[in-house]
């Protein structure tokens, strides 16, 4: 195929909560402590302040999220981002899809995300296609992922330890998407 897909550069979106977030001046000591658990703590985003209403789950989830997306070794970062993107597209989380498409593009260039946003699944390389197929099937309710998906990933040279990382990056967006999308809107 010689046709070319226009390369898109996605602009960041802004997320606005449907429910009133915690205001810093009203925050309890535990909420204040919880809100520090962010990669860059300079400014506390409306998202963090919304979820800080329940400090226990916020802290625990953030620790797990960071382990899954940033742990050393194993599956490369771009493939984790693609798993996150696949889940976010199925779950209808525009904001998460935008963030993780941009992360993927930053790591490996815009070819894959441009193809996806143009609806050109046929233009994905075989590894990305296997990852997207698996992400979609695992994200479905109930999940429809089966042995054939795992075999397709293995055929692309993925070790089981890497597939385990991919499973977790898809699963953690089965969680994050169900917060970000239902609790707010983005534009």
């Amino acid at each position: 195929m010689t046709d070319t897909i226009p390369q898109v550069t996605l602009k960041p979106l802004t997320w606005t909560p449907h429910l009133p977030p915690v205001e810093i001046e009203d925050a309890t000591p535990r909420q204040l402590e919880a809100m520090k658990v962010t990669p860059s703590a300079k400014k506390v985003s409306p998202y963090v302040r919304t979820l800080a209403h329940d400090p226990d789950s916020y802290v625990a989830r953030t620790v797990l999220f960071n382990a899954i997306m940033y742990a050393e070794g194993g599956l490369n970062r771009a493939d984790r981002e693609l798993g996150a993107l696949g889940a976010s597209l199925i779950n209808g989380c525009k904001y998460c899809a935008n963030v993780h498409a941009r992360q993927h593009a930053r790591l490996t260039g815009t070819a894959t995300t441009s193809a996806l946003f143009a609806g050109r699944r046929d233009a994905l390389n075989p590894r990305d296609a296997a990852i997207m197929d698996f992400a979609e099937a695992l994200t479905a309710t109930p999940p429809t992922a089966d042995q054939s998906h795992v075999e397709a990933l293995r055929a692309q040279g993925m070790e089981d330890a890497e597939i385990q990382d991919l499973i977790h990056s898809i699963a953690i967006f089965g969680w994050a998407n169900r917060l970000m999308h239902p609790l707010g809107h983005s534009d």
């Binding site: 429910l19 994200t139 309710t141 999940p143 089965g174």
Partner: peptide, 15 residues
């Protein structure tokens, strides 16, 4: 918020 986290956690476990 707490219920949203709980529901979404269960969805994580499923996957």
């Amino acid at each position: 918020i707490a219920l949203s986290e709980l529901l979404a956690f269960a969805c994580y476990q499923i996957r």
